[in-house]
Design a protein around this nucleic acid. Sequence first.
DNA 1: CTTGTATATAACCATATAGTTATAATATTA
DNA 2: TAATATTATAACTATATGGTTATATACAAG
Lengths: 107, 107
Amino acid sequence: MDTNRLAAALKALADPTRLKIIALLNTRSCCVCELVPIFGISQPAVSKHMSRLKSAELVVETRKGQWVFYSINRERLKQVCCALENLPDCSHEFEKLAEQGRLVTCE
Amino acid sequence: MDTNRLAAALKALADPTRLKIIALLNTRSCCVCELVPIFGISQPAVSKHMSRLKSAELVVETRKGQWVFYSINRERLKQVCCALENLPDCSHEFEKLAEQGRLVTCE
DNA sequence: CTTGTATATAACCATATAGTTATAATATTA
DNA sequence: TAATATTATAACTATATGGTTATATACAAG
């Protein structure tokens, strides 16, 4: 996963409400109307959070009658963790700097 | 690490520029004047990014003469990964919902 | 077909964010 | 001390974000 994609996924996670939603879904799938009383924010606010998490592929939705159940995408979450633990090598950037004589070699 | 603190740390990481800075520092410590030509943004912009990373304790600074070298705080980054991999248990929230008769038990 | 429940979307608002330029502060060097 | 280089801060701007209310859509049950 390149840094741009990783940053986008982290952005989806980098909000206290969405992060707790992910923690909740890690325990059990649930629907919007269950999340509303937990967070004390409006139903549209919860829907928007779910939409962001869905865009980041961190959750998947399944309609069951009038309810839409959201489940965590553990694969994706694992990918994010792995990407964070295995940051891309950037030596080439330092080589470029060296070529340009911009490398600061201190002491 | 509670979800609020984790969200704050993720926010610091959830930006393409800062994420790449972290990747660069993972290869080698460096100073602001080296980062400026890499990203092609202004020096104050880089300084602000470093300030955010420092606030999140993801980097530490060391002044060496006229330069300020920034190094990655691998411990902290590891903490973030671990926290993401071990999300807090939220069963109590579902128990509360059940008590309130708000749990949606579908099918 | 109408009513009620659940969810999504639209329009809006206040605040946060990532950049800019200008300037101040810190350290080196002549 | 004066001049130069590096970094940080201040003030500003445009855009993104997280919330709101109002409304539309989807499904279930009379």
